[in-house]
Design a protein around this nucleic acid. Structure first.
Lengths: 328, 328
DNA sequence: GTGAAAGCGCTAACAG
DNA sequence: CTGTTAGCGCTTTCAC
C-alpha cells in the first residue's frame, strides 16, 4: 500500500508538498501538482482516510443508528436524513444496533468515529445514549424521551396521534375499542396508549381489555394478539393497533377466520408505512411526518456542530389517513 | 476530551498499562485494572476508535454499498450480509452512493476506511470499483460483471430467471409476450432480457416490441411504460417486467384502465420483493435467493481476509413463484 | 512555492 | 506485571 511518503519520494518533493498538491491547495505550482498527481497515479496511491481523520480530529460523517439495517423502517425518514446530510456536504453511514453493547452502533457511538449521530433504535439503551453524549458529540434521539443536557430530541406527537385514531373510531359510532400495543418499554407505545385512554375518557368510554404490550410492534405479534382476541370469543367493534405492522398482522388473522374488515370489525393503525396502502382492505392509519423528522434531526446536528443553541426537544404533528379498514 | 494519557496519569500508570487494562489484557493485575477503569470512568474517557484503527491498520468493519439508504432494496440480502458479518465479530456499516464520485460510498471505497466492501449499487461505476480494488481490500460486487483480479462477483442467474419467467407465460398458452425492461446500463436487465429472448426463440416466437429499457426499474417507470403500451392500442397477452417494482406500476396502470389481470392480460415480475405478495392480484414472479447471496458475499470477504483463494464468480439460481397475476 | 518536523491518540514490541 | 518508546499516515505550522 503506497503512502503519501512514497508519492512524495517518487515525485521528488516533500511530504507536505505532496499533501498540499493532493488536496488542491493553491500554494502549489501547477507543475508540481501535476508531478505529484502523476506519481500518485503510478503508485495507485489511496489516501488513508483514517489517518486523515485522526489528524484533523473530524470525520465529516454522521451516523444513523438503526435497530436493524434490513428494515423494516421508515424510508421517508432516512430520505430526510440523507438529503440534509448531503446538502451539508457531510457523509452518512447507517449502522445497526443488533447485538446490543457489542453492536456496530454502540461502537460508533462510543468511539467517536463520527461527528454526530441520530438514534432511531429502541434497542439502544438510554444509559448508552447518555454515556455517549458529549458537548462535542451531537446526539439526536428520535424514538424516546431522554433528559440529558447533551441529548436532543425530535418526536412525533404520538399521544395526539393516538387520540386522533381513537376518536375517529368513536366518531364512526364504535364504542367497544381495543388497543393492541407494542413493547412495554417503547416510549412511542406508551404515548399512543395514553392518547387512546384520553380519547376514551373524554367520551366516557372504558378501555376494552389489557392488550397494551402484547403485539411487540411486529406483524407476527399483531397476528398472534388478534388470534388471542378472536379466541376469547368477544370481539370489540374496533381495534387501534399501536403500529401498522401489527395492524397488518391483525388483518391477516381476521382473514384466516373469515371475519370481514371493516364490516364486522374496524381496524386502524399508526405510522402509515408503505405497505398500508396495498393491504386489503387498505389500512386507515395515522401518518407521521417522517421525512420532516429525519431532515430536522440532521439539521439540528449541524446547528450543534456550528455551536448554535437549540431547543432540547422538537415535536412534530400527526395526521389521520382515511382508507378502507374502518366502518364508514 | 480525555485521552488515554489522561487516564494513565490519573491512575498513576504508564499509557501502555492503561491501554492493556482497558483492552482486557491478562497481563495486568486486577488492582491496576480497576484503578485504570476507575480513572477512565471519572474522566468519562472514550477511546478514539480512529486512532486505534490507524495503529492497528485494520478497522474490523465491512461496508455495504447501497445505491440509496432509503431503499427500496433487498432486505433479505442485507439480513444475510448482517448475519454473517456479526457471526464473524465484524462491524457492518451501510452507505449510499447517491452523489456519485462525491458520495460517501466512493469515499469509503477509496480511502480504505473499511476492511472490505460489498457493492450493490448500480450507480457506482465499474471504473471506481476497479480503481478501489486492491490485494488487501476485498471487494464483492453483486450486480454486475467486472473482470478484474481483485473484484469478485456473486450473481443470481438472471438469464435463467428471465428464461423461466418467459417460459411460464408460454406454457400457459400465451404467444404475444412483451418484456418491459430496466435501465439500459443494468447488467441484470440485460441478462433477464437475454433469457426472455432465448425462451421465445426456443418456442419459435418473436419479441413483442422494443420496450427493453423503458421502465427504469421503478414503479413509476413501469406505470408509464404500461400506459404507453395501452395507448398503442394493441396489448400483448402477457408482460414480463424486468422487476417487481415495474410490474407493480404496471398493475396500477391496468387498474386505471379497468383492464383485468390476469383475465385480460398476464403479468410476471422478477425479484419477489415483499410487496409482491400483497398487491392485487398477488404477483407471480421469479424469486432470487437474496439471503444466500448476501451471506455468501460476506463469507467470501472473510475468506479473502484470511488469505484464502476463492473463485472469481459465484452464481446462484432462481426460482418461479406462482401467484395470481398470470392466467392459469 | 516548498520543506522539515511536530503530533493527532492509540497499540505493541521490547526492556525491565 | 509495568513502563518506555516508536510509529501508524496524514495535516499543518512555521521557517526558508
Amino acid at each position: 500500500m503506497a503512502t503519501i511518503k512514497d508519492v512524495a519520494k517518487l515525485a521528488g518533493v516533500a511530504v507536505s508538498t505532496a499533501s498540499y498538491a493532493l488536496n488542491n491547495s493553491t500554494r502549489i505550482s501547477a507543475a508540481t501538482k501535476q508531478r505529484v498527481e502523476e506519481a500518485a497515479r503510478t503508485l495507485n496511491y489511496k489516501k488513508n482516510g483514517i489517518a486523515s481523520d485522526l489528524k484533523r480530529t473530524k470525520t465529516n460523517t454522521i451516523a444513523l443508528i438503526l435497530s436493524d439495517l434490513s428494515g423494516p423502517y421508515y424510508s421517508e425518514l432516512i430520505k430526510g436524513v440523507q438529503d440534509v446530510t448531503m446538502a451539508n456536504g457531510y457523509d452518512l453511514i447507517a449502522c445497526s444496533s443488533i447485538g446490543g453493547p457489542q453492536s456496530t452502533a454502540v461502537k460508533f457511538l462510543r468511539e467517536k468515529r463520527v461527528d454526530g449521530a441520530i438514534i432511531l433504535a429502541h434497542n439502544i439503551s438510554d444509559q448508552i445514549t447518555i454515556e455517549s453524549a458529549q458537548e462535542d458529540f451531537p446526539l439526536i434521539v428520535l424514538d424516546r424521551d431522554i433528559s440529558n443536557k447533551y441529548v436532543y430530541h425530535v418526536e412525533v406527537d404520538n399521544e395526539h396521534g393516538g387520540y386522533l385514531a381513537t376518536e375517529y373510531l368513536i366518531e364512526k359510532g364504535l364504542r367497544n375499542i381495543a388497543y393492541i400495543g407494542g413493547p412495554q418499554d417503547s416510549n412511542d407505545n406508551k404515548k399512543r396508549l395514553k392518547g387512546y385512554m384520553e380519547a376514551l375518557k373524554n367520551h366516557n368510554l372504558t378501555a376494552y381489555s389489557n392488550l397494551n404490550s402484547i403485539g411487540n410492534f411486529t406483524r407476527e405479534g399483531g397476528y398472534k394478539a388478534t388470534k388471542l382476541l378472536i379466541a376469547r370469543g368477544e370481539l370489540p367493534e374496533g381495534i387501534f393497533y399501536g403500529n401498522d405492522e401489527m395492524a397488518i398482522g391483525g388483518l391477516q388473522a381476521f382473514r384466516d377466520h373469515q371475519i370481514k374488515v371493516p364490516e364486522e370489525i374496524s381496524v386502524i393503525g399508526f405510522d402509515d408505512i408503505q405497505l398500508s396502502e396495498y393491504v386489503s382492505p387498505p389500512l386507515t392509519t395515522i401518518k407521521q411526518p417522517k421525512y420532516e423528522a429525519g431532515a430536522l434531526a440532521v439539521d439540528l446536528i449541524f446547528q450543534l456542530i456550528e455551536g448554535k443553541q437549540i431547543n432540547q426537544k422538537y415535536t412534530l404533528s400527526t395526521e389521520l389517513v382515511v382508507r378502507e379498514s374502518v366502518r364508514k
